[in-house]
Structures are given as C-alpha cells and as structure tokens.
Amino acid sequence: MQMLADIASTDTAEKNAMIEARDVSVFYDNKQALKDVSLDVFENEITSLIGPSGCGKSTFLRCLNRMNDTVAGCRVEGTILLDGEDIYASSVDEVLLRARVGMVFQKPNPFPKSIYDNVAYGPRIHGLAKDKDELDDLVLTSLEKAGLLKEVRDRLNASGTGLSGGQQQRLCIARALAVQPDIILMDEPCSALDPIATAKVEELIEELRQNYTIIIVTHSMQQAARISQKTAFFHLGEIVEVGDTEQLFTSPSDERTQGYITGRFG
C-alpha cells in the first residue's frame, strides 16, 4: 500500500502546472488589492476561487489574461507563467493572450449583433476561418459545445440580446470558445441566473473540462464543491489555503477557511 501511495505522489509531483503564479501582488494606485499570491493551475481541471466580497478573487482572475492592463493606475508585480512563458513579458501580445485565455463575465454581455455574428466576431478578427464555410462550421461547433445550438439553430440571424439570461451566458461561452482558447476564465458566471439556468451552465462547465482548463470565481461554495477539482480560498488579498476541493471543504487546515465555509464570517 505504501508503494502505491509513493507512486501516486510521484505522479502528482511530475504533473506540470499549466499556469504558475508566484508572489503576485496588485496595486490600484496606492491601494494593495493582492499580496504575494502563488497558485498552480493544472490542465483539464476546474479551479474555483472562493472568499468574501473584495478579497481579491476577481482581481487575480483578471491578472491571468492581463485584463488589469486596461485599468488606470493598476500595477501588477510577481510572475505568471503560462506553459513556462511569462505572460507579462514585453514580447507578449495581449490580444493573442486573451484569445488563448478566454473570459466569461458575471453578467451576460452579448454584443448587439445577431447570434451568428456574436460567435463569429472573434474568429473574424483573428483570421481563424479562411472562408464562409469554415466560419459557419466554427460558429455551429462553438454553439454546440456551449449547449446552445439546438435552441437557436433556426434563428441564428436573430439578435443575441433577445435570448434569455441563461442562453445569453451560454452564447458568451460560445463566443469565448470560438477563438479556440486553452483556458477559460469565468467571473461568477451564474450569479445573474436562475437555478435552472445555473444548473445548465454548471453541466456545461463540467463537460468543457474535457478539452479546456477552467478557473472560476464563485460566491457559491456549493457550486465550487459540485464542479471543481481544486479550490483556493482568498481572504484580504491573500490565498489562505488551496487544495483538492473535497479535502478543503471537509477538513480545511486553516481556521479562517473553516470559519468561512461554516458561515461564521464572510
């Protein structure tokens, strides 16, 4: 039995992280929002970021595709490697980075365009389709991956803003998938949805894990427990604890994690 345990621990140790964040600190002018955050994210896993409002979860998420670059007065320190390459190196093209590291926001934000054009927007910008047939195929495939194709196949020219909230969020997921990312960042993607739409999106997220690496910010500890393999607990701009989701929820090693999970604070 000990030999099997040794083999298992060796396999885990040999598994390379897709994202390696080390000592990441974020400042908005003179206010520090993140303090020396370090986290590894592994391929084809769902990693949940949990913690009270204002604890730095979304700030850290936006570091991973350099969305914080668009915020005036924001400064990021530390190192974030994607497949061993520093995403903050001067040679990195942020547009290409954001295609590889897609993002789905808290509130569904379809463009005021047709369903088809919402999904086709990214591939057109990045030149991912050489002709109309290839673009059509990419749009339909992305909608199918997002679990939306059956519901909209006959109205691809209708406005994306006319869909229900849950459908709009799945359209935004299809839009992110269309540029063929490796990683999908999700910032509370279900917070504006009803329970039925939330269940559909959670089911979709679990299916997407087969082909994508997903990092999700969520205020719902039940959601984190249901869908993620790893969970990181943030508090006051720091990571207090990170580990396998089941272990973190059943036997956390830090009393602050225990306090948050049991509702004593947060």
Rank of each mutant, 00 (worst) to 15 (best):
V24H: 03
R170K: 11
L177G: 05
Q169G: 12
K107Y: 11
S25C: 11
E43N: 09
Q2R: 07
H126L: 12
L236S: 14
T262R: 06
T10F: 11
A89Q: 09
Y212N: 05
S253C: 11
Q210Y: 02
A120G: 01
E207V: 10
E85H: 04
Q258H: 12
D6Y: 10
L177A: 08
C190T: 15
D36W: 00
T218I: 06
D133T: 04
D182H: 03
Q106H: 01
D69V: 06
C55Q: 02
R155C: 08
M221Q: 11
V26W: 09
G51K: 00
L248G: 04
V240L: 07
A5Y: 05
S90C: 09
M3P: 05
G259N: 07
A17K: 07
E43G: 10
R98C: 06
S53K: 02
G266I: 07
Q222S: 15
C55H: 00
E207S: 13
E203C: 01
G127V: 01
M3N: 13
V95H: 11
D40T: 03
F60P: 09
L148A: 05
S90H: 10
Y212Q: 08
C55M: 02
F42N: 08
L82C: 08
G78M: 10
E188T: 03
F42P: 04
P181C: 07
T47E: 08
L61S: 08
I46P: 08
A232Q: 08
R100K: 14
I205M: 15
R153V: 13
S53C: 06
A225W: 09
N65T: 01
D182G: 14
P108H: 09
Y28H: 10
L204N: 13
I183W: 05
E246K: 10
R226G: 05
P108M: 05
R75E: 15
R124S: 12
Q210P: 00
R264D: 14
R175C: 02
P123I: 01
A225V: 02
S114M: 01
G51V: 12
L148G: 03
A146M: 10
A158N: 14
P252N: 10
G51L: 09
Q32S: 09
S253F: 00
Q247A: 12
L156H: 03
V179G: 01
R100N: 14
E14Y: 06
I80L: 10
T79A: 14
E85D: 14
N44A: 06
S228M: 12
V26F: 06
T262G: 02
A8E: 15
T161W: 00
V95G: 00
E85K: 12
D194I: 07
K200I: 06
L156W: 04
G165L: 04
